[in-house]
């Protein structure tokens, strides 16, 4: 399933009654099975894009389409995952993975089967009866991915899922996520502020400007091994791509 934004703008009214334009006139398309990253300075409305795709709120202007149908509310096609793992601390891991299936009329036994399958896919076999506090940060994020995939979404939204992890865990997890996502063939939108991460994991990168966020550049990453960021990492082209994004973000002007 493809995801499309058609001249989407979103305004918020702040507590003091002012209008805040989070994103302005954003248009892009993520094709089926494609992995697209959105990078941009903090506060450029990256998370607003995610929330609108998940159907948590509607755009002020324009349209968000999932497989050519406008998103009008939370829907079964989209699964999202944040920097916080959002695991329910009172549930063990397997029940956490089942969480998304409970309101969708999936029978109890099938829920458990699907959860166990995702658990294995995300390399958490043997930890199904552990509680979140007993797991490391990396394992918790993998449990969150398992929960996201358990609902069999067509589109996966990742909002800085690796940014709270230490450097080594991050690399390993990027690799493991990339492989899982490529195996399942999901359409993926990754929101990140890590330029290298965007280059390592994506087919295409959208660069957003400062608020009000709008797409200032679109970079196609023409490198092999999308399912293996650890292999891409050693390619010399990676720094060129990162350099391109860096320029588009106009970071040099801000460096003092």
């Amino acid at each position: 399933m493809a995801l499309e934004f058609r001249s989407v703008s979103k305004e918020f009214t702040t507590g003091t009654g002012q209008n805040l334009v989070a994103v302005k006139d954003i248009s892009f398309r993520v094709n089926e099975g494609e992995f697209v990253s959105v990078v941009g300075p903090s506060g450029c409305g990256k998370s607003t894009i995610l929330s609108m795709t998940a159907g948590l709120y509607q755009p002020t202007r324009g349209e968000v389409l999932v497989s050519d149908e406008p998103v009008s509310g939370p829907n079964a096609h989209v699964g999202f995952m944040l920097q916080k793992d959002l695991l329910l601390p009172w549930r063990d891991i397997v029940s956490n993975i089942e969480f998304g299936l409970e309101a969708r009329g999936v029978a109890r036994a099938e829920r458990r089967d699907r959860a166990m399958a995702e658990l294995k896919r995300c390399h958490l076999a043997g930890f199904e009866n552990h509680f979140p506090y007993q797991l490391s940060g990396g394992m918790r994020q993998r449990a969150a991915l398992a929960r996201t995939l358990a609902i069999k979404p067509e589109i996966v939204l990742l909002d800085e899922p690796f940014s709270a992890l230490d450097a080594q865990t991050k690399l390993l997890l990027q690799n493991s996520f990339a492989r899982t996502i490529s195996e399942t063939g999901k359409t993926t939108l990754l929101i990140t502020h890590d330029l290298a991460e965007a280059v390592l994991m994506s087919d295409r990168i959208l660069v957003l400007s400062e608020r009000p966020g709008t797409v200032v550049a679109e970079i196609k990453v023409d490198l092999p091994h999308r399912d293996e960021p650890l292999q891409r990492r050693v390619m010399p082209e990676v720094s060129d791509y990162a350099g391109q994004i860096f320029k588009h973000l106009k970071l040099e002007e801000k460096a003092i």
Partner: peptide
């Protein structure tokens, strides 16, 4: 929000 996205009432 996660619960809402999962269609919980």
């Amino acid at each position: 929000n996660l619960a809402r996205a999962y269609n919980l009432s």
